[in-house]
Design a protein around this nucleic acid. Structure first.
Lengths: 326, 326
DNA sequence: TTGTAAGCGTTATCAC
DNA sequence: GTGATAACGCTTACAA
């Protein structure tokens, strides 16, 4: 492949001048510039970003370590993060951890030897001890010490869900979500605030008795048998807030399999927005977090970090997206 | 950051020896090796993959240019491609084209200056004229001159769909899919063979009259109004093969909205496997292409390409996944 | 076994 | 305005 030296030789100039033309930096006589540009076209020179990274000590690559992109919201987030980064001149490397701590550790290690400029981390694992805080990291839905994070307004999401179910006349409430809350686990996610907002708002409305279902961490998991049992065990419940749309879908499926109707007998609110490329079944009423806003926040934090500026965490607003399940 | 030179100095050896230890290449006395390893740990040395890429003239990065990862099958494919590449020591860069030719062109250009080792291309655009055939490229579901591709057995998929609908007693058949076939468009996708297989098999069974619906290229698109009209216009049809699950879902939605039942009144077969993280609505009977097999095929082709070996295209088998829509 | 030194393709500092 | 030249951090002949 042609190098900057080939261009310089053929154009009869020094390589510094070629570099100036390529980077539009410094002064170059119009005439020289044109000659160089002509030669570049002629020999089909393409600049080498690796060599560039070498001298500049950065490669404009950001990595996203996340469980997978199959869960619709993760897919949306990945999509928008990439779009946003691209606009700012960054490329995106994807690392699917499949939710495994060991893989996350290996990935982060690898990313450091690859000298990516920053890492976006989306995990429910207890990875805090392995994190190198001197490396630019931003996390999603998760608070680590000294690491800025982005999360939707999980607490308000819980509040909205409660308020909506109350408005719809529900009397017996349930929450289904993961157990990363308080001091029960080493891991504390921002997501756990969905539960808090929900319970608080119900309490403010005089409702103290709420059936709380907890399952192992990981809101993209759904546990068919488990959910089936839960639904069967609590026939009195008529208002359910599920921690994600995936779980909500599982809940709805089981309620209807049990011969009851959603929303007539039981109303269900999910979290993530109720969006899907599949127009099958009822649209879920859901607390909607915006992947665009979140992606923007993540990228703006990254931009600060790579410039050695500190950055605050960001909470993005949520809305309730009315579907056919409440 | 510490470099190989720092390690060499501190260990009192030459940098070549350190390099040998890091890469486990060549002979190094056990004693020296241990000393170097100790120093590496001590000063927290992490090798620099950029510098490595510089000398080795490859960076073990592969890029995947695809429309998005929101369409479930694309998400599955992305996931498995990344997993497969990771196993082989490669990293994955994602480039969402959002289906736009201009973006694809800009991305491919960028990827070349970034010197990625290979590009995986998934597109329905007429990008052939812009392709640099000297660069390692593998495409999915699409045949370009001199570019190996991977595709599922689209023709057999069409045949299976037809056979299944016939078995189920359908009499009036329809196909809904894109129009990239024959010489009608400059773009010819492998996907268009779904239609051929379907029509051929119907013909072999004495069925010549098939309503063929064509919409603009892009099987991940769904056109709500259009599908609505199609369904309304053809009340006699009782067997439909849709080119993708997304389209099938739209079809089913519209049939049921029109007051008819699936599968009692109309049977519908989709393509992609009927998988989804959302357990809502009926499971679609669908021709299933395996994202794992496809990812394996893609990566094995890439491995050949980066080693300057030529490679054949690969067709992966399909199965029919019975759901509740036939 | 080990060390020296020549690349790899840029950018950027400094003279000119 | 422009051109040498020294980094950047590594691999790999080639010598020792």
């Amino acid at each position: 492949m042609a190098t900057i030296i080939d261009v310089a030789k053929k154009a009869g100039v020094g390589i510094a001048t070629v570099s100036r033309v390529i980077n539009k930096s410094g002064y170059v006589k119009q005439e020289t510039r044109e000659k160089i540009e002509r030669v570049i076209k002629e020999i089909g020179y393409v600049s080498n970003e690796i060599a560039r990274s070498m001298t500049l000590q950065r490669n404009n690559i950001v990595a996203f370590v996340l469980p997978d992109c199959l869960h619709f919201f993760f897919g949306e987030l990945l999509y928008h993060v990439e779009q946003e980064l691209y606009q700012k001149g960054y490329k995106l490397m994807v690392c699917n951890s499949s939710e495994q701590l060991e893989k996350e550790i290996v990935y982060i290690d690898m990313l450091k030897t690859n000298r990516v400029d920053a890492i976006i981390l989306l995990t429910n694992n207890d990875i805090e001890p392995y994190l190198d805080k001197s490396f630019p990291i931003v996390s999603f839905d998760r608070k680590f010490k000294d690491v800025p994070f982005v999360a939707s307004d999980n607490y308000m999401g819980g509040v909205s869900a409660a308020r909506h179910l109350i408005d719809k006349g529900c009397k017996h409430f349930m929450f289904i979500g993961d157990d990363a809350q308080g001091d029960k686990t080493p891991v504390q996610t921002e997501v756990s605030k969905r539960r808090l907002g929900y319970l608080d708002e119900l309490k403010r409305n005089g409702i103290e008795e709420v059936i709380q279902i907890e399952y192992p961490l990981g809101n993209y998991l759904y546990l068919p048998e488990y959910v089936h049992q839960i639904i069967a065990d609590h026939p009195e419940v008529d208002g359910i807030f599920a921690i994600s749309d995936v779980v909500a879908a599982e809940v709805i499926f089981n309620i209807e399999k049990g011969g009851r109707n959603v929303p007539d007998d039981v109303k269900v609110v999910g979290y993530d927005g109720g969006r899907s490329y599949f127009k099958l079944g009822k649209r879920i009423t859901s607390i909607s977090q915006s992947p665009e806003l979140i992606a923007q926040a993540i990228v703006s934090i990254i931009l600060r970090l790579v410039n050695d500026q500190s950055s605050e965490s960001v909470i993005t607003p949520v809305t309730i997206n009315l579907g056919e399940t409440t």
